[in-house]
Design a protein around this nucleic acid. Sequence first.
DNA 1: CCAGACGTTGTT
DNA 2: GTCTGG
DNA 3: CCAGACGTTGTT
DNA 4: GTCTGG
Length: 230
Amino acid sequence: MCGRYVLSGTPSELSAYFGLQDCPDFLPRFNIAPQSDIPVIRQRPEIGLVGQIVRWGLVPSWAKDSSIGAKLNNARAETVADKPSFRSSFTRHRCIIPASGYFEWQAVSRNGKAFKQPWYIRPTEENAYFAMAGLLAKWVAPDGSNLITACVITTEPNGVMTPIYDRMPVILSGNDIGTWLDPVNHDRNVLIPILKSVADETMKAVPVSLSVNRAGNEGPELIQAIELSE
DNA sequence: CCAGACGTTGTT
DNA sequence: GTCTGG
DNA sequence: CCAGACGTTGTT
DNA sequence: GTCTGG
């Protein structure tokens, strides 16, 4: 899955990489947790690609209160087009969630004890970004205010992720990014097939320290590779 | 028909 | 809003 | 995702 | 065990 990630670049770097027409300000983050405000990329008709800050944790428009968002950090690619919580977002409100990399926890046994080893997964290419496939939803609070939220779509693991975990975020590349973001594209026969695990060569995984476990911790040391002891 | 759920993950 | 269960 | 709390009453 | 907060 994808429950913690990194976006360490600046708005101008992100704009240059993805060709954004506009991007709000944001700070570099090394430990982004669900319920955080995050930058996403969407396509505006007549304008092009733009950045926008939304909350991670999808709140569907029909929700009675926003608490359901705490559960909807991810959506499964296999069912996203059909589930009531995601269906309309899949048809109309797709986005890219840009990431410098993401974390995954590997269940291991060390000295006979269950233990979770965190890994950092980043693009093979330096200074590149992952374009994670995401969904958006707008929820209107009882007081009339709007809440825009997002979730990350997950799929089966590729060869890099299989030893670590049995799910991974959908990462789009090349033409698939434009196809996914095109707001007039409502064809599930086109959209569903691009939600596959990305090629092994595009990513590398390194083990990192347990510091990342605590969501309040921040800083580049969180993505520093460590030596694994037996 | 109305009522109630609507999700993923991991763990048992 | 829309689907499932009763 | 993981970490940490999980409660009421009354007093400061 | 389950929910909330980060």
